[in-house]
Write a protein that binds this DNA or RNA. Sequence first.
DNA 1: TCATAAGCGAGACGGTACGTCAGGTCTTCCA
DNA 2: TGGAAGACCTGACGTACCGTCTCGCTTATGA
Lengths: 219, 219, 219, 219
Amino acid sequence: MQSRTRSTRAGRPRSATADAAILAATRAALVELGWSRLTLGDVATRAGVAKTTLYRRWAGKNELVVDAVAELFDELRLPDHGSLAADIEGVVLQFAAILDRPEARSGLMAVVAESTRDEALRERIRTSIVDRQKRLVLEGRARARSRGELPPEPAPEEAARTADLIFDMVAGAVVHRTLISAEPADEQWVRGFTRILLTGLAAHSPSGGPSLLEELGGI
Amino acid sequence: MQSRTRSTRAGRPRSATADAAILAATRAALVELGWSRLTLGDVATRAGVAKTTLYRRWAGKNELVVDAVAELFDELRLPDHGSLAADIEGVVLQFAAILDRPEARSGLMAVVAESTRDEALRERIRTSIVDRQKRLVLEGRARARSRGELPPEPAPEEAARTADLIFDMVAGAVVHRTLISAEPADEQWVRGFTRILLTGLAAHSPSGGPSLLEELGGI
Amino acid sequence: MQSRTRSTRAGRPRSATADAAILAATRAALVELGWSRLTLGDVATRAGVAKTTLYRRWAGKNELVVDAVAELFDELRLPDHGSLAADIEGVVLQFAAILDRPEARSGLMAVVAESTRDEALRERIRTSIVDRQKRLVLEGRARARSRGELPPEPAPEEAARTADLIFDMVAGAVVHRTLISAEPADEQWVRGFTRILLTGLAAHSPSGGPSLLEELGGI
Amino acid sequence: MQSRTRSTRAGRPRSATADAAILAATRAALVELGWSRLTLGDVATRAGVAKTTLYRRWAGKNELVVDAVAELFDELRLPDHGSLAADIEGVVLQFAAILDRPEARSGLMAVVAESTRDEALRERIRTSIVDRQKRLVLEGRARARSRGELPPEPAPEEAARTADLIFDMVAGAVVHRTLISAEPADEQWVRGFTRILLTGLAAHSPSGGPSLLEELGGI
DNA sequence: TCATAAGCGAGACGGTACGTCAGGTCTTCCA
DNA sequence: TGGAAGACCTGACGTACCGTCTCGCTTATGA
């Protein structure tokens, strides 16, 4: 079969374990050295791999770190605390906890900085990190609707636009708080943030506002 | 006298124009090359200055770029469009316009990335950029109060905390939209963002809410 | 029988054509690239052979090039021009012509250079090239004796020593002229060289000298 | 003055001691490692110098080794043993002794090999080594003439051609004996070589022959 | 006839050195 | 004494080959 011929190509196959070892070594190096002092030679040594093997699989430091950091955000889970407010607070605290880890802190901002001059890298970040975590917004919104906390689904286009906006507001606020303002995103901050966001969201819809506002008023 | 001895020390005085030339050259280099390919040797050449002169005034690339970028944000002005909503939309669009300029895009994120492992740099960013632009929040809030769009000043501590939160939400959302999501912060996005933020803010205060909500409902 | 078991072992026999293809590819690569830029991977590709096949038959670049170059010198023939002087001139010109070919020029000197630190390689050069071409000296001397141009054979030990010396003088002079002085070994040079050598040789023997000297005097 | 402006240029001047240290380190590395395993990084380390300093002064390994080896041959001196034969034997033995030193053995042949594909390197070898040592031939011939061992100076053009030829014969024979045949150039070999060469040379000239032949006959 | 065994192509692998580049320091001369 | 010029040491870069290895496949012999 052609597919067999394609998949089982001639030559020694690539080591399956090397990828995982390299990504783990990259995160370890980020913890110890940070982005700017991280070198691919050092990563290769830590992973017990030759530099050439590393370059055979990633184009450079940027691409490697995107992949290493992206895996971190896959740990995010949307908890079920019974209310949308509590769920948001929970996921925001998780996000803040990840951004508190040194391998995420310096890695994420650095690749974003590099991506401003590299379209391919920008796309890779979008694919591996941004779009991948938007699932949390979609999942949270669906659950809130099933609880009756949010009005029914608007037109698809509008829904997508709002999901993007919410994601920018949530992720942006946490990133700015922890990395740019460089202050802790502690419970108090998270509660204040969530209250403003949710109030805004509830009122934004024509129908579902009042009851939610009343509920929030009691916090 | 001591003061004269200090300010007018023996020997040739430092060139006054050199600093401005160096910062301008730094921004020019950021535009052409971006952060990672910017070299201090190149900046020195562009500024018509020796490398030693540059190192005598800045500790390194990070500090130099912070100063070069900080000047960009001083251009931000709080416009008076008659309502808080319009004022916020105006300043957010200005902010987005600055983040669209290549010298800001790659420079800002890069120094933030470096600052995650450098306390002094973190402090420098806070002083030169973050705290410096919080003036916009304070000024905007004061003007809104004088218009009656927001309730009177709460306790000072609470006021400061809220100002920080608003700044994180505004700046964070714009940064995330433009640099991480890498989508344009166009008028539609800004209007949606402002509506959610303002609604949340108005409801957050016990008294000032209803009238604002009614006003926004008409948009 | 053991010998049959040894020579006709089980398994696929080595490809007979591969050796010739590899040596030819080696010479082609020497012509195009010279010694230092010649790579075994490239030779393998040119020969349409895998790198492993090449390493199964030669220990490395040195051994391969010795064999590739040695074949070139097997082209040397001792011409019969009627006199020892003319015969020597003929073979010297042939030798110079071979050393003018790029595959010989860079290959020969390079393996000699490597052989200074590698006894096995030194032995391989002696066997494959040096001793192999001494036949020309022996053959020429025998023919000259049969013509009466040289005195009868001295003691075997002395004969061997003299043959070595003559070979060093002839080959050495041509090598030095063409490769180190980097001047052409043209007819004028060859005639001058041959005259000095032959005069020296003739006088060196107790008896045969005078007649030869007289003959040479007329040139 | 212009010359002063040129020679005393701005900036830190090149370290005077570095060159000597680098050449000495090169020879030491040749002794220990030979040509092919010698690396410029290692030479730089041995010399206590940065790799960039080395590359600032030499274009590559070839040029560096030519200079390092050339210094070795400057040690050659033409001894005065009272007769041309003895003088030649003396200088040939010195030459053989130098070619017995590992730094000369592998270095010399290697750069000659490289020079077959590099005209600039060929010229450098000619200038730094070949032409430089031809002085020995000229000096020896002049001394022999003053002793009456050789006929008076022929036409200048003819004299130059003969000097080149003699140099090729002497240097070539020694190089071939020691490096290609890989046999020792001991006293017996040197005596045999010198006898053939001198006889040839003496007979080559119309007048000076006979007496010299008689002298040599007694050896 | 079919298992056994070696050769073969392809290509990934751990290494080593390459030659270049930028960082930051230093040494010189000039203003 | 400040500044321009430029040489210096350090260390990482990304690339090229090295010689070895692991594959799946081919081609012989011999039980």
